[in-house]
Design a protein around this nucleic acid. Structure first.
Lengths: 109, 109
DNA sequence: AAGTCTAGTAACCTTTAAGTAACCAGAAAA
DNA sequence: TTTTCTGGTTACTTAAAGGTTACTAGACTT
């Protein structure tokens, strides 16, 4: 009965990657930070993403409860996005990832 | 001169994702943890990955300095892998990610 | 010697996330 | 009225990560 072997096929890391492990979600989360931004503002900041993909990813992040979409206060056609509490809890982790990368992959000696 | 706009197309998060943002790397790092494992042991733990992809990703992680590959001490044909200091620095961040996921996506109320 | 183990490798295929281009409709501005 | 803005949507394509299958060679075991 060797059930002690750690099986990672459905381990916490695998499940976590299934939720946020796409190319653009971490970048969108990072770009939002603790600001509230309109679609267009996000698109300017992440200027290499297509509007299609940005739309798709924003919708998924909204459905997953990581960001919140609401009409902009000064306009009915503009919408704005911001991180929810759930999303904000991710931010420091994202920041730590970038610090790790800065330190280990980008520092010049 | 509006250079204050934060452009994320080559921001820290984008660069970080370029280095570790693939399907299997975070999972491999998590599965290794602070252990030293042989190829076959890793494969048992991540049992849904193909040997081809495991080999590929292990080689990239080795080239990136995140893991270290060395002959096993008790055998010349077996090789073992472990996280480097650089890789170990990632581990707590990975753990935090899974804790986040556990708390926000998997908790039953 | 034959069979098994070990960590791959090669050739090719599949999947799907991401990308391209064109279009849309309502609201707002000129 | 026309044009621009805004946040999409649609139809299709592309790229590449990941997967499948078969094979390899040396080391080890029977």
């Amino acid at each position: 009965m060797n059930r002690e072997i750690f099986i990672c096929s459905n381990c916490p890391m695998t499940r976590t990657m299934a939720t946020i492990g796409t190319k653009w979600k971490p970048i969108i989360i990072y770009a939002l930070g603790n600001r509230t931004l309109r679609f267009g503002e996000l698109h300017v900041r992440i200027d290499t993403i297509s509007r299609k993909v940005l739309t798709d990813q924003l919708r998924e992040l909204t459905e997953d409860g990581i960001i919140q979409r609401s009409p902009a206060q000064d306009s009915s056609r503009k919408v704005e996005y911001r991180l929810t509490e759930k999303g904000l809890a991710l931010l420091p982790i994202m920041n730590m990832l970038t610090e790790w990368n800065l330190r280990y992959n980008e520092s010049e000696i």
